[in-house]
């Protein structure tokens, strides 16, 4: 049993054992602007239209091959049907890591935590009885696929696909995001 556990541990360790463990933190960093479409995957979509989003992203070398990711973005969700006000301001932030897949580098898989902040846009409607008259925020997690398309000099163009789940009540809320980005190495 002891040998088995040890073997499992060593196998686990070998996933990271490819390169030297000397630190590369912040050796390289880049900034990206990204825009795309945001799709509501569950019944929240009944009275909200799918929309567009914009965000900026800061990437940095973290350790081994892992890339650290910090994002901040904005989207406006337009309401339909029986919602009394016109729309919802949504600000989102994400923090996580990307792992370039060894066999198809530089395509990367990523995951991390999300935070979304919302407030009803009440200039053109009535927000009484709404849960969004004051600020609401919720955490969740995301998973993403990062597909670089073109690289030249310090610049890169690519596409990203996200699945995101927010831990809202009484049911969780799922979204899918698809966008293109323009990225520049800072150092």
């Amino acid at each position: 049993m002891k040998k088995f556990l040890l073997a499992v541990m060593l196998f686990g360790a070998s996933l990271w054992a490819k390169t030297d463990s000397t630190s590369v933190e912040f050796d390289h960093a880049s900034l990206a602007l990204e825009g795309g479409a945001l799709y509501l995957l569950d019944d929240a979509g009944l009275n909200l239209e799918d929309t567009y989003y914009g965000l900026w992203e800061f990437d940095y070398t973290f350790f081994r091959d892992l890339i650290g990711v910090v994002q901040m973005g904005y989207a406006y969700l337009t309401t339909t049907g029986n919602v009394a006000y016109h729309g919802i301001h949504q600000v989102n932030g994400r923090i996580g890591v990307d792992y370039p897949l060894p066999f198809v580098k530089p395509i990367a898989l990523g995951a991390g935590f999300s935070c979304v902040w919302m407030r009803a846009d009440d200039e053109s409607g009535n927000t009484n009885g709404s849960s969004l008259t004051d600020n609401e925020s919720e955490f969740g997690f995301y998973a993403r696929l990062n597909l670089p398309i073109l690289n030249w000099d310090k610049w890169r163009v690519g596409a990203r696909v996200y699945f995101e789940r927010l831990w809202t009540a009484p049911e969780t809320s799922e979204t899918a995001w698809f966008g293109f980005y323009l990225q520049r190495n800072l150092w």
Binding site: T79, S131, T168
Partner: peptide, 22 residues
């Protein structure tokens, strides 16, 4: 945050969903 904010309640239920604490 205590997770379970009522973020999408308006589009889902047209307002506060009863029985749920924020």
């Amino acid at each position: 945050n205590e997770i379970g904010d009522l973020m999408y309640q308006d589009p889902r239920h047209g307002g506060w969903s009863s029985g749920n604490e924020n």
